[in-house]
Design a protein around this nucleic acid. Structure first.
Length: 464
DNA sequence: GCATGATCATGC
DNA sequence: GCATGATCATGC
């Protein structure tokens, strides 16, 4: 392959990359024209690492060695290859987060945003996205996106959030609390754990060892970037923050909270009169729909919440302050959950426990106060809204419920899972269409589908 | 009023 | 048609 681009020019790197769109490495590199046994061998490999190496070596002909500078050093461009999924026709999502480089806690603590390893390494990203397909060798994966993503050219609304995220991460690092970092701390830019082996630790500011972590764009934000590129304006979800608001010297979360302020203390009927036109107050989604309207969003999705993977939950408090309901999560599959691992498990293990990912996410609670027991017809007032991440100690409690659940299912006792009295934070209960909506256990019992729930008494303390 | 089991309404 | 978030029902 001839070199047909200028390694010192970001635009040239992008233009050259775009030749891959809707093609594959095999067709674009053209193996048949120039026989190359090494290339043939590597094109027939599997796995994402192989794809990335192939693009580096045989497409761009670069051989990056130094992790602290961008791959195209002179152009200041970092090359990233990443899988996407097609959910249904014309609907795409990122398959995973985009990892942006390991954090050296002690070094990073001394830096500013502009001199941080996040910024200096990832200020310009050349992103090549291919359609994920397990059964296909890397040479035959179809490329859908080749795009130069420059930080300074992202919308101000995005940059505001990313910069705020970086500040939150660096604050913990500087305080010697890198071991307390969690992906739920931040919105688009995360500090994700990097090692599959839980015993690996790194030094940080102070003496406490911390898990190695890397900067990453969360998968929700990657999905947003993918959709902007492939689906254009037509599919754009509504933003809660208008461009003019993004310019204000206030964090994203504070700006959201501010939108609710004028309506705190108002009854649901009064709020409906302000923003609820056209909403059906009989639906289970009503309190959530009202909350979205208060944020200025008419539809069912809030773009920033999707991109930041924030779970919005509505809570109704009875007169005594106890939430009317426990809080449910998606149902688990008995056969899947026994294959999953929680951070800290020894050995290679399987997929990260879905429940762990859920309790590490950021939540947005919209809390209504009932006049009595929250039965039908009871008066409800908007009490407050709050962003929340589950504290570390409570996640350890939730982990105990998860571990007992897995242990019971493995032991053939899937009919006896942790109840609400056994744990301060979480329990297990049915979550199905009805009692005939079952799922098969590893020992071939067919039991009603279940999920993890946060205890209402725990939530009472959280929202107090 | 709590623990537990069961089910609903909607969007995708 | 099912996953998801939310809610209802019953027995003690």
């Amino acid at each position: 392959m001839e070199l047909k681009y200028d390694q010192t020019s970001p635009q040239s790197i992008e233009t050259f990359g775009k030749r891959l769109i809707d093609g594959t490495l095999r067709t674009v590199i053209g193996v048949k024209k120039i026989p190359n046994p090494e290339l043939e061998r590597r094109i027939s490999a599997h796995g994402r690492g192989s794809f990335g190496e192939l693009v580096e070596t045989f497409y761009y002909d670069i051989h990056p060695g130094n992790d602290s500078v961008p791959d195209f050093t002179e152009a200041g461009v970092e090359l990233k290859t990443t899988p996407i999924k097609q959910i249904r026709s014309a609907r795409y999502s990122a398959k995973e987060r985009l990892v942006l480089g390991l954090i050296n806690y002690r070094e990073e603590a001394k830096r500013s945003f502009q001199t941080s390893s996040f910024f200096t390494k990832n200020e310009r990203l050349m992103i090549i996205s291919y359609l994920h397909d397990k059964g296909v060798v890397v040479g035959d994966l179809i490329v859908k996106i080749a795009k130069l993503v420059e930080y300074e050219k992202l919308p101000l609304e995005d940059r505001k959030i990313i910069h705020g995220d970086w500040e939150k991460i660096i604050e913990k690092i500087r305080a010697g609390k890198a071991h307390e970092l969690s992906e739920g701390d931040t919105l688009y830019l995360g500090a994700c754990t990097k090692s599959s082996d839980s015993s690996v630790m790194r030094t940080q500011v102070g003496d406490i060892p911390a898990k190695p972590r890397a900067y990453s764009f969360k998968s929700g934000y990657m999905t947003e970037l993918v959709r902007r590129e492939l689906e254009g304006e037509a599919s754009e979800d509504e933003r809660a923050l208008k461009p003019s608001e993004a310019g204000q010297p206030m964090s994203f979360e504070d700006l959201i909270i501010k939108k609710f302020q004028p309506l705190i203390g108002k009854t649901v009927e009064e709020i409906h009169a302000f923003v609820g036109k056209g909403l059906n107050d009989m639906t289970k989604d009503y309190h959530a729909a009202l909350a979205r309207r208060m944020m200025g969003v008419k539809g069912a999705r809030v773009m920033e919440f999707d991109a930041a993977e924030i779970s919005m939950k509505t809570i109704q408090l009875r007169k005594d302050g106890m939430p009317k309901e426990h809080m449910s999560f998606p149902a688990f599959k008995y056969k899947e959950i026994v294959q999953q691992v929680w951070d800290g498990d020894e050995g290679p293990g399987g997929a990260r426990a879905a429940f762990q990912e859920q309790v590490e996410k950021r939540f947005f609670f919209v809390i209504y106060q009932c006049g009595g027991d929250c039965k039908r017809g009871d008066q409800r007032r908007l009490k407050k809204v709050m962003f929340w991440s589950m504290p570390f100690d409570d996640r350890r409690e939730a982990e105990k419920t998860w571990r007992k659940t897995v242990r019971q299912i493995k032991a053939g006792r899937a009919d006896d899972l942790p109840g609400v009295k056994e744990n301060r934070v979480a329990h297990v209960r049915p979550h199905a269409r009805d009692s005939s909506d079952t799922d098969e256990t590893p020992d071939k019992q067919h039991l009603v589908k279940k999920c993890f729930w946060l205890n209402q008494a725990y939530l009472k303390e959280v929202v107090k």
